[in-house]
Amino acid sequence: MLSKDFTQSVFILIISTIVVASFSILVLIVPNLVRTDEIIATSLAKPLTPLELAGRDVYISEGCHVCHTQMVRGIEPEVKRNGRANKEGDDIYEFPNLWGSKRTGPDLTNIGRKYSEQWQRIHLMNPRKVVPTSIMPAYPWLFTQVLSGDDIESKMRVLRKLGVPYTENEIDKARLQVKGVTKGEALIQYLQSLGNDTASDQEH
């Protein structure tokens, strides 16, 4: 005997599916989205400088997040290896999050204080120069492609609308900071910034 509900009416099929599937939205999504102020109150995060922001977009565009996580889980050995564990407020200005899902290369959450810019440069040009068995691609073009800085203001304005506290003054000066810098240098500035804002919150 066939049941006499969703299998008889396309309308009931659609509505009942939406209702059942929506429970997860109501429980997991909505209550967490309304907590932004609460999260910001606990946050040590500082907005990225224009150059770091430009570098972050290089990071995104090259797909660094495909192989590198930015999420130190709160487990002791993981903290020992990668530094301070992430807290909920750390990434409140991260639109979108760059936690990643695969650690083909090491976690980068706290990479900012570990290597010199020179090392980063050599490593991006050819990772195997400094890590012999590395399987990371080489990114030589990053050091030939130059940023114009033309879109940095609109990026910052969008982020300000989304909640990053950039001042008009910062946005005003942004283009000059970015213009003429290579993608590689911007990326390195971004990498060097990682973990700096939370550095004061340490326990070994």
Binding site: I39, E88, N97
Partner: peptide, 8 residues
């Protein structure tokens, strides 16, 4: 969405 909220 940002950070932890975005991750969810």
């Amino acid at each position: 969405f940002s950070g932890a909220q975005d991750a969810i």
